[in-house]
Structures are given as structure tokens and as C-alpha cells.
């Protein structure tokens, strides 16, 4: 409850500043480079983009937002960040996938130029600590905790324990991003369940349908699987197709994953997906734009906002359905 109240207060503060902003508004719009993370049109990245665009619309001619699409490639993110720094904008909102080590020299350089940098989706703990007073915030989930929350809730709702088997399909190889997978895996293992882990290959990462033969093969070999957790928005939205193709009936395997989308909504309604952790990507686009705006205009320090605290299941999905269709949830 406290978390909800504090979040509402932060949102109210941001919106009131946006309304009163014109009084103190600068002549030139703030130029902001924003990283939605994935490819153009990707389901998750598009919701992040929608959030950033919504903030852009509210702030009107006070900001000018430019987007860099990175296909979730950490290397591309670094290259695009370097290019953004060279363009010398007023602010950059970066995803933290490359990690502190890779981004540190470039963020230092950006700060030397007076560019406000903030982060979303994946944390950059060292950079955030160093530059929090200068507007470096974070809007996203606490990765490990989110993973653990989903894993723990999945075990509880599915009524599993010792002697059961689970598959966790995730991205442990990515330095910071992998923490969410680790959290889910740890939670399921803590319940005494035997866990098989599979890494999401780059092909499947880019196109979830490429994962059909992978999971079909796994389930054919391990028909006693009770729980499947996919740590990837696109894979979660395809989970119904995976399980159906593998010859499973709805509910035969407990399906759990991350991030909402219209396809995930269908998967929940069809009974193949029982539990989804929602990190509210819309806010990961919306809040960083405001973070940069209030830091540039009012010298506010960085706000660390956990956007990932909701679990969606068949009991509450109806409430969210219209917002999912609009690309807000």
C-alpha cells in the first residue's frame, strides 16, 4: 500500500510540475534521446515507446524526443549511446543492458558535457549512485526481486513442491538483465522443485516463433514438466502456441512469464498462461522523460521507481484487458 501511495505521489508531483512548467519553461525545447530497447514495432519496446510518446505529448513543445532502437543488443546500445552523446542533447534515457562497465566512460563523458542521463528497465547501480544528485534515476523493476516474486507466486498458485519439475527459459547470460531469470530460478528451486534451465538463443530472442521446436523438443523429452517460466515478453505471449504445438491441453502445464501484451492476454484467456508479472513498461517510457524534464528545469535528483510490482492472472485480467489493447499495459 505504501508503495502505491508513494508512486501516486510521485506521479502527481510530475504532472503538477508539467502543468506549472510553462511558467518557467525554456525557450528551446529540451532535446532528449530515448532508448525503447528493442526493435521498431517489438511488442515490449512499443509499449515503452508509447509511454515516452505520451510524456512527449503532455510536455508538448517543451521537449523534443528522439528514439534509438537497439534490437536488445547491448553493443548497439553502447554505440547508439556514444552517438547520442556526440549529438549533445539535453538528456539521454538509456536502458541498462550493457552494464556499468561498458557504459561508464560514455556516461562520464555525457555528464562532463552537462547531459542529464537517466535509466530505465535495467539498472546501472554504479552510475546511478554516482550521478543520482544530477538527475540519474531509474524507472523499472528490481530485477532479481521481480523474478523471485513470479517464481514464488507460480509455485504457490500451481501448488507445486518436491518431486515436481519446472523449466526456466531465460537470459542468464546477460550481466544485469539475467538477474530476473536468476530470481525466478532461485524461487522455484527453493521450493524443492527440480529445475531445468534453457538459455534463450539470439534467434528466439529476436523472433519468438523460432522457439517452437525448442520447447516442443523439451516437452516431448520431459512430459512430466509441471511448470514453464519464460523470462521474455515475446516468449510469454507465444507460450500458448508453444504448449499447443507440443500437444498440451490448457492448464496441463502451469505457464508463467513476464510482461503483458494483447497476445499474452489471449494466452491467459485461453488457459495456457496462468500467471504474468507485469513490469509496466509504459511507465518505463513515461517516467524517464519527466525525470529529465524536472532535473533540467528544477534540479531534482534522480528518482528510483520500481515499476514492477503487479501479478496478472485469470482473476484480474478482465480489468486490464482494455488497457492492454490500447498498448498502455
Amino acid at each position: 500500500m505504501l508503495r502505491k501511495i508513494s508512486f501516486v505521489m510521485v506521479l502527481a508531483l510530475l504532472l503538477s510540475l508539467a502543468v506549472t512548467g510553462p511558467i518557467m519553461a525554456q525557450d528551446e525545447p529540451l532535446e532528449i534521446y530515448f532508448f525503447p530497447g528493442g526493435p521498431e514495432g517489438g511488442p515490449f519496446a512499443t509499449i515503452v515507446y508509447n509511454g515516452a510518446e505520451h510524456a512527449n505529448e503532455i510536455l508538448g513543445d517543451r521537449v523534443e524526443v528522439r528514439y534509438r532502437w537497439s534490437d536488445w543488443s547491448p553493443e548497439r546500445m553502447v554505440t547508439q549511446f556514444q552517438e547520442a552523446v556526440a549529438a549533445n542533447p539535453d538528456g539521454i534515457a538509456i536502458m541498462g543492458h550493457p552494464g556499468d562497465d561498458a557504459l561508464e566512460p560514455h556516461i562520464d563523458e555525457a555528464r562532463e558535457q552537462g547531459i542529464i542521463v537517466t535509466s530505465q528497465n535495467t539498472t546501472l547501480p554504479r552510475m546511478e549512485e554516482r550521478y543520482v544528485a544530477e538527475g540519474f534515476g531509474y524507472a523499472g523493476q528490481d530485477l532479481y526481486d521481480s523474478g523471485y516474486m513470479l517464481g514464488e507466486a507460480a509455485v504457490e498458485r500451481a501448488g507445486l513442491g518436491e518431486g515436481n519439475r519446472a523449466l526456466v527459459w531465460g537470459l542468464l547470460s546477460q550481466p544485469t538483465r539475467g538477474q530476473r531469470t536468476q530470481g525466478a530460478k532461485d524461487a522455484v528451486e527453493a521450493a524443492g522443485i527440480e529445475v531445468d534451465y534453457m538459455e534463450i538463443s539470439s534467434e528466439v530472442d529476436a523472433d519468438a516463433s523460432a522457439g517452437i521446436p525448442v520447447i516442443s523438443g523439451y516437452l516431448a523429452e520431459n512430459p512430466d514438466t509441471d511448470l514453464v517460466i519464460t523470462d521474455h515478453g515475446a516468449l510469454t505471449s507465444t507460450l500458448d502456441v508453444y504448449l499447443e504445438t507440443a500437444g498440451m491441453e490448457p492448464g496441463e502445464v502451469f505457464g508463467a512469464g513476464f510482461d503483458l501484451s494483447p497476445a499474452t492476454l489471449d494466452a491467459i484467456e485461453s488457459g495456457y498462461v496462468q500467471l504474468v508479472h507485469d513490469q509496466q513498461p509504459f511507465l518505463q517510457g513515461f517516467l524517464p522523460i519527466f525525470q529529465i524534464y524536472i532535473s533540467a528545469n528544477y534540479q531534482f535528483s534522480g528518482l528510483h521507481i520500481d515499476t514492477g510490482s503487479g501479478l496478472v492472472h485469470e482473476d484480474n485480467v478482465e480489468l486490464l484487458a482494455p488497457l492492454i489493447d490500447e498498448g498502455i499495459r
Binding site: 534490437d71 543488443s73 547491448p74 553493443e75 548497439r76 553502447v78 550493457p98 552494464g99 562497465d101 561498458a102 561508464e104 547470460s173 546477460q174 550481466p175 539470439s202
Partner: peptide, 15 residues
Amino acid sequence: DVFRLRTWWPTQGQG
């Protein structure tokens, strides 16, 4: 690329 990033990822080169 590793010199630039001071990190190596198993996904290196895909982009």
C-alpha cells in the same frame, strides 16, 4: 569491441 566495452557477451557480433 571488447576493448571498447570492457565486457564480453556471448551474444557479441549479432547486431
